[in-house]
Amino acid sequence: MNPEVSTPPADVRTSSGSIYDLGYQRYTGPRLGRAYAARSLYAHGLAAAFGIGRSTRSKVIPMGLFVIALVPAVIELGIAALAGGILQPVRLDNYYSLVGTVMLLFCAAVAPELVGRDQRNHVLSLYFSRALDRRDYALAKFGALLTAMLLIALVPEFVLYLGSALVGADPIAYLRAHLDQPGPILASGLVTSLEVATVALAIAALTPRRAYATGGIVAAWFIADGLGTLVASVGDVAWTRYGVLLSPSLVSDGAIRWFFGTGGDEILLRADLPGWWYLVAALVYSGAAGIVILRRYSRIPA
């Protein structure tokens, strides 16, 4: 209608209406496919786990818990530097029994953020209508959570390990003398992270609500823990010692002690089970939780 408007050549117009060519084009280039999409989702999830790319307020909890998980290592290094390693209250093999709660809370805060938001905002259908399929989505989210857990599990361990070398007079000699350590460190970090991450993700995937998910993760973990510990501490009866296998944190603790070849605390000593039992139990828990996750995502209405 307006004579001054310059008309793009591709416009369709009649006397009563017109469709303007705004330059939209169909994408004809190569498409990057499933693997790339899954990788992007993984990378985004990992960043989001620490609140990177989110507001400052959503960084406080994950970053704060990460820092708290480092505190025992820093304290131990301080003690070692000042007292020369006479006391060793914090060691590589008992580190997780000190910070296990911190790791659990980290996971209980992060897992619902990773999978709950998409359900809450009803955007799963958008993901599933792309190159990603349901299993890719679940695996990418799980990968992100597992990586985040590995970071919070392994960074303090390596800080403690390498720091112990550096506070001594001869770091090279220390490392040479402790060459057998990185293997158990990695194995115990992996088992602990795997167990927490799978169990937490299985619970978080079941509900879009953050409070249910966080509460459910912490409740399930601590109640199983309390049950297992109490049953195992019923004395004078042979079969109650299997109670330790009910407790997820005793299970991972048992596996860690087995990796490091150390004895473990009172309740594990009394149970007196072969070390590899704990590893198998941890893998059974993770596997069961993994099945729950995959089943949930194969059925979730998107």
Partner: peptide, 22 residues
Amino acid sequence: LALLAACAPVLVAAIYRIAGGG
């Protein structure tokens, strides 16, 4: 969830009595 949690101590106590620990 809360009710489920509440059952845990009772369950443990029952196991304890059945096992007959001192």
